[in-house]
């Protein structure tokens, strides 16, 4: 059976290292992109099963990328977790309004992230 694919989108090498290390304990295939534009390209090419999306990124930010994905039929229901340092209510509200499925804050809580991935993707 093909592995489930998780796309990590972040312009921070440190955040990507952290997410990669956490997901190395899982059975999922890991894909990476460094901004929203690259994320859209990887989605088109690889059809991931779930996305972890940073908000503040060059070229196209996370909210812009989510809006574009939600406008397409094939990615309308794709689980997208926002992963960001911003926890203020207004930012969380904007994230959900924009179409994210879950909203997680940095520093990432590893056990919580793994539990959420399992909830959406299974073992």
């Amino acid at each position: 059976m093909a592995k489930k694919k998780v796309l990590l989108v972040d312009d921070s090498k440190t955040a990507l290292m952290m997410e990669r290390l956490l997901l190395s304990q899982t059975p999922y295939e890991i894909l990476e992109a460094h901004d929203g534009i690259e994320a859209l390209e990887v989605v088109e090419r690889e059809s991931p099963d779930l996305i972890l999306m940073d908000v503040t990124m060059p070229r196209l930010d996370g909210l812009g990328a989510v809006q574009r994905l939600r406008a397409q039929e094939k990615t309308r229901a794709l689980p997208i977790f926002m992963v960001t340092t911003r926890s203020e209510a207004a930012h969380v509200h904007t994230g959900f309004q924009g179409g994210c499925t879950e909203y997680l804050t940095k520093p990432i809580n590893g056990p919580l992230l793994l539990a959420k991935l399992k909830e959406y993707l299974g073992d």
Partner: peptide, 10 residues
């Protein structure tokens, strides 16, 4: 990045 992503300050 270490301070923002791993410790939690901007």
């Amino acid at each position: 990045e270490i301070v923002a992503n791993l410790i939690g300050s901007e």
